[in-house]
Design a binder for these strands. Structure first.
Length: 275
DNA sequence: CCGACAACCTGTGAGC
DNA sequence: TGCTCACAGGTTGTCG
């Protein structure tokens, strides 16, 4: 489920419910995620006030006075604000308990595949090894055509794999790598060092636009998902190429082709993405 | 340093 | 229906 737009939508959906709130602790039903959830999570969080909720790459960071809780949604994770007595379902592995007057609420972490993570970092979260060596945020001003061109010059790997390499830029997952390359007219197998500066300028703008559009769409269709009793929805998205193998390209009608790169599915239009 | 790929885990849909 | 297989939005770790 989560690419960067969903993670950012989740952040926006939960931040008002937890910022400035005191935590009553945590309930860990299954701590066997990507890495073990700290066994003393309840004690670590009890009494802490959440000062802000921010995002770095696809990590959500709940900052308190004594440290930061780092949350990753993996492939299938979600976070919702529910009443603490709301019935627990099969893959609801962790509740972060939020004191809010008389009613106890929970920030409930669900993750069927358990590729997600929940880690504690006593100092600033930026010093955590997982966050220490990440490339720029795609939506920030330091992700520029000049920067991308300089990075790609060193590499002959296929551009799609480089776009998904978090040392170069974070937060571009499989869907948006496919979509951005279609929009930019770039063949996904093009070696990185073959992209001219002007093409990099254009690709950077397109990556930003593609992610920003998805965040806007997620925000509009998932507005109340944190309060909903049902499972969180996934925003309706008209993909140009993703998951459209053999279907006609929306621009030229040529059947969309599919292959694998780096053990991930790649979709492209052989006519529109000639270079 | 780089690239290739195995691994973590459950659910779902296609095909037989 | 039920079985088996391939694949799924991510990322780390290991190997050559």
């Amino acid at each position: 489920m989560p690419e960067l737009p969903e993670v950012e939508t989740t952040r926006r959906g939960v931040e008002n419910s937890v910022t400035g709130q005191r935590l009553a602790g945590a309930v860990v039903r299954n701590g066997r995620l990507r890495w073990p959830v700290p066994s003393d999570l309840d004690a670590l969080l009890k009494g802490q006030v959440v000062q802000r909720v921010w995002r770095r790459a696809k990590y959500l960071i709940f900052e308190t006075q004594t440290g930061s809780l780092i949350v990753h949604l993996g492939m299938s994770g979600s976070l919702r604000v529910v009443s603490a007595d709301f019935p627990v379902e099969k893959h609801d592995h962790v509740d972060l308990l939020i004191e809010s007057g008389a009613a106890l609420r929970a920030l409930r972490f669900r993750d069927p595949r358990r590729f997600g993570a929940m880690l504690w970092q006593p100092a600033g979260a930026g010093t955590h090894p997982l966050l220490a060596h990440l490339g720029p945020e795609p939506l920030e001003d330091d992700f520029t055509g000049a920067y991308l061109h300089a990075e790609l010059k060193k590499r002959s790997t296929a551009i799609k794999l480089l776009l998904m390499d978090n040392r170069i830029v974070v937060g571009v997952g499989n869907i948006y790598a496919n979509e951005a390359l279609f929009r930019a007219g770039i063949h996904p197998a093009m070696p990185g060092d073959k992209l001219r500066r002007a093409v990099c300028d254009r690709l950077v703008v397109i990556v930003k636009e593609t992610l920003a559009e998805a965040i806007a769409a997620g925000g509009s269709t998932l507005r109340d998902f944190v309060d909903a009793a049902g499972k969180p929805g996934y925003f309706q998205q008209n993909y140009f190429v993703y998951d459209r193998s053999d279907q006609p390209c929306f621009k030229c009608g040529t059947p969309i082709r599919t292959t694998r790169q780096g053990q991930r599915s790649t979709f492209w239009c052989p006519h529109c993405q000639s270079r």
